[in-house]
Amino acid sequence: MNHTDRETGAYWRANLRLVGLLLVVWAAVSFGAGVVFVDVLNRFTLPGTTFPLGFWFAQQGSIYVFVALIFVYVVRMNALDRRFGVDEGSDDAGDPQGPGAGR
């Protein structure tokens, strides 16, 4: 195994850790709060509203978290790509690119 292979292996493991962590949150807000624990959470209301909490997670909260998860993923992955030098092309490596500055 040469140097590049080890680097790529480390990149892939870091990627899997990040994805695994985000998927745990993904499952927790939808299958956890929105389905399995919905009745328990429904005993509370979302502060400042009249939403039963579990119902809110199932019909609103989970969706907001999904959006946030993807953007966290984009930022962290782009950073990871640069750290391991596997991002796309040197021509755009110097771009001051936050998410959304794609083109």
Binding site: V35, A58, S62, F66, L69
Partner: peptide, 13 residues
């Protein structure tokens, strides 16, 4: 609601 949005997390990741 969850099914048709949560799939995008899988798609992205």
């Amino acid at each position: 609601l969850m099914g048709w949005t949560g799939g995008y997390v899988l798609l992205a990741l």
